[in-house]
């Protein structure tokens, strides 16, 4: 298996290379440049021209590409045009915010969804099952921003259980216990919202897998051997029903850095989603390209991880 993994990693190089070509030239095809947004009656077109020249934006695209890829290979993604900061540092800061938010969300999501899915599948067609289905339809149907605003209004402003915006209270200094508590407190509400909205898929997959499995031969065999029903569920059915979920686990793990533009905007939480959107709007080339490359790499890695996880979970699958 190790051979395969190494081979997959080597295969990523040409894939990422093609991606880098695509993203670089598509970014350049967009009208405007990072300086278009600076036009006011006081800005001098000649100065903007001088700045573009200095930034190398007037060179032919292939020249710019070679320069960029050369730097990128050395881990040097340049300076953000908008934030005037090192891109790696900027993305690092936002990625950390997003990572904690997503990690907690995913944990919470599985904690809610897996038991509900199992219960719905096991007590198929019961009142409990129907309630769970109703719940999952509602959460599936509610748009992210509606539920976020509703929760923010209810739990943030009315009941005042949670802070309403930002990632941390300013009065605590970094490193203290209060500081980390404040950080956790700030991500709880967005986390809950995110988790509740994401449960449908898992519940439905798990439920239908369990219902299918119940009629399978191996379950009947197990039962006829006299294995208690409880044990059949936990040992036999559960493991098999988790397969489709495990198939996505790799993407879920690498997707932790994706970020959600709705959640971040409504809860005023500086994360990756917002950074991506705003960098496109302001033509912040260095940030756009770095982010797309990062996401590209994560997607490839995600699919590899999924394959590995599958081969561990399901002994029938071997990646050779």
């Amino acid at each position: 298996m190790w051979k395969i993994i190494v081979r997959r990693f080597i295969l990523m190089i040409p894939q990422l290379f093609v991606l880098s070509l695509l993203v670089f030239f598509l970014a350049k095809f967009m009208p405007g440049d990072p300086f278009t947004g600076l036009i006011t009656p006081q800005t001098d077109p000649a100065r903007l021209e001088e700045l573009s020249e200095k930034a190398g934006l007037n060179d032919p695209w292939p020249v710019q590409y070679v320069r960029w890829i050369g730097n990128a290979l050395q881990g040097e993604f340049g300076i953000s045009y908008t934030f005037k900061r090192d891109v790696a540092e900027l993305i690092g800061e936002r990625a950390l915010n997003t990572f904690w938010l997503s990690l907690l969300s995913v944990i919470l999501l599985y904690t809610i969804a897996i038991p509900l899915g199992i219960l719905a599948g096991r007590y198929h067609n019961s009142r409990l099952d129907k309630t769970i289905i109703l719940y999952s339809f509602i959460t599936y149907a509610i748009p992210t921003f509606v539920l976020s605003l509703l929760f923010l209004y209810l739990f943030g402003y009315k009941l005042e259980w949670f802070p309403t915006s930002g990632s941390v209270d300013i009065e605590y200094s970094s490193g203290t216990i209060q500081y980390y508590w404040s950080k956790l407190h700030h991500i709880l509400l967005p986390t809950i919202t995110y988790a509740i909205l994401g449960t449908t898929g898992i519940i439905q997959f798990l439920r239908s897998e369990i219902i299918d499995a119940k009629a399978m031969d191996y379950v009947r065999t197990a039962r006829s051997k006299g294995i208690p029903i409880k044990k059949v569920y936990t040992k036999h059915i559960f493991r098999n029903s988790l397969l489709p979920i495990a198939a996505f686990l790799g993407f879920t793990i690498t997707g932790l850095l994706g970020g959600s533009i709705f959640i971040e905007t409504i809860f005023g939480y500086p994360g990756m989603g917002q950074l991506f959107i705003s960098s496109i709007a302001s033509r912040d080339y260095s940030v756009i390209t770095a982010l797309v490359m990062l996401y590209g790499f994560l997607t490839l890695l995600g699919s590899l991880l999924s394959d590995i996880i599958m081969s561990i979970v399901d002994p029938r699958i071997r990646i050779e």
Partner: peptide, 16 residues
């Protein structure tokens, strides 16, 4: 103390 507040919830924040 100056805080960035999202436009979607600022009206409620003003009221509270």
């Amino acid at each position: 103390l100056v805080k960035v507040v999202p436009s979607s919830s600022v009206s409620v924040a003003i009221g509270t």
